[in-house]
Nucleic acid binder design. Structure first.
Lengths: 236, 236
DNA sequence: GAAAATTTATTTGTCTTACAATAAAATAAT
DNA sequence: ATTATTTTATTGTAAGACAAATAAATTTTC
């Protein structure tokens, strides 16, 4: 047993009025009394319906807005969002800033999960973009970080849906932010290009397993390079 | 002059005071002035520091609490969370209740993303649990839904980290809730058991590609069955 | 003197009231 | 009829008061 493990008692969640109001309003969605895009009653009406004061109600509404569940417009009113937003996820990740291992892993998990779906769903246009992206990387003599990033972004988006697409950029951004000060060792453009080509061809063949396999090899290679670079930094 | 401008200005996000306060407080983390677990100043102090009224401040704090960024305890104070919570993610999913295709896909994405990591990280204890789980399913003559679910949960958790583990149960719960009224067709226990065994063996061999492959086959099979069941419901 | 009970003080939780800002809708002015 | 102004409903912000919870200090009890 590790000595520094703090006891993990699950934090007792207080049932404040505001929290109860949040539940009630989300319940309107889950019970399908209201649906995405619908207008909520005004604050005055909600106060009476829920028997709470305005500050309490507004605290709840603020929370729901932060979570991307509702949108509020002055004078117009409050509406359930029509699609899930990326804001909550982005903010969740903020807690993990600097946690290199976890950030690398979540990117790995997320991208590996999407590439199989991408093999099923990717469009001809996106395949064309990927092909152009590879050519661009082959030909440039400058820093190809952004091209590399775009390659992965295209694949992730083509494998995503309305639920998962909001997670892509936050994860990539956190990844970049976490690794921005780590100069990768042994960076080999020709190897990167070859691995990108492998992934591309698997996608062209609509082969989820092959796409996963080549993406895994690629990201594992990246992870290994990052690992050794971090190792170096810790020594220095 | 016509005012019917077709220019679509991107949703102007109003900079309410509360929103600005949220940004300021998150900035304390991102700028690493404070870190996870640290205590924030009391509400009174924050009011003075930020020059806002208490309702505004409390709306911001409520939002941050809903996002799992902070925890508040009466009398003790406000603290930055030490780990990311699952609440925001769970609530995000609420917007997609009933969206069968997307819910199935996010489970697919998430679980396929984790199974490769599971092959790298799974413990002997968890492997043992999986083995027992398979035996249990083989032997029972009753409904094995819960056993099936546990099999997948063990794998997902063993591939997760502190960032991704909070997403597992919300996704599985939403999946169950969305499909609870859909009786799956052509359910074959022997086939399920065989597929679970394939996954298990790949994990034992620490073979990420093989684990992905067998999990893909398994979930693809599930997806296909769900698809046909939904099809039937639409016809009836 | 130490343990138990009580009080105190600090901090979060809730309510009430009031007013400001905004923008849609209605009305007046040209 | 179009433009400008006013009205009005709704969200946004503020201030003050009190309640509830609880850690810390204090007093009581043995």
């Amino acid at each position: 047993m590790k000595e520094n493990d703090p006891l993990q008692i699950k934090s007792v969640k207080r049932k404040t009025l505001a929290n109860q109001v949040i539940e009630q309003i989300i319940d309107l969605l889950l019970s399908e009394q209201l649906k995405a895009g619908d207008k909520l009653p005004s604050e005055m009406e909600l106060m009476e319906m829920l028997h709470v004061s305005r500050p309490v109600l507004r605290e709840a509404l603020s929370s729901l807005e932060a979570l991307g569940i509702i949108n509020r417009k002055t004078k117009e009113g409050t509406f359930f969002s029509t699609k899930v937003g990326s804001e909550p996820f982005k903010i969740m990740l903020a807690l993990s800033v600097g946690d290199i291992d976890n950030v690398i892993e979540i990117r790995l998990t997320h991208e590996l999960g999407l590439v199989g779906l991408a093999a099923e769903k990717i469009s001809e246009l996106e395949l064309k973009k990927l092909n152009e992206n590879i050519e661009e990387m082959e030909q440039t003599n400058e820093d190809y970080t952004e091209i590399d990033r775009e390659f992965h972004r295209i694949i992730a988006y083509s494998g995503s849906n309305s639920l998962t697409e909001g997670m892509i950029d936050p994860i990539l951004n956190m990844y970049d932010k976490t690794l921005e000060n780590i100069a990768l060792k042994d960076r080999s453009k020709s190897k990167t290009v070859q691995q990108h080509k492998d992934i591309y061809h698997a996608l062209v063949n609509r082969d989820p397993i092959g796409a996963y396999k080549s993406m895994y090899n690629h990201l594992d290679h990246v992870r290994d390079r990052v690992g050794r670079s971090v190792e170096d930094r810790r020594i220095n």
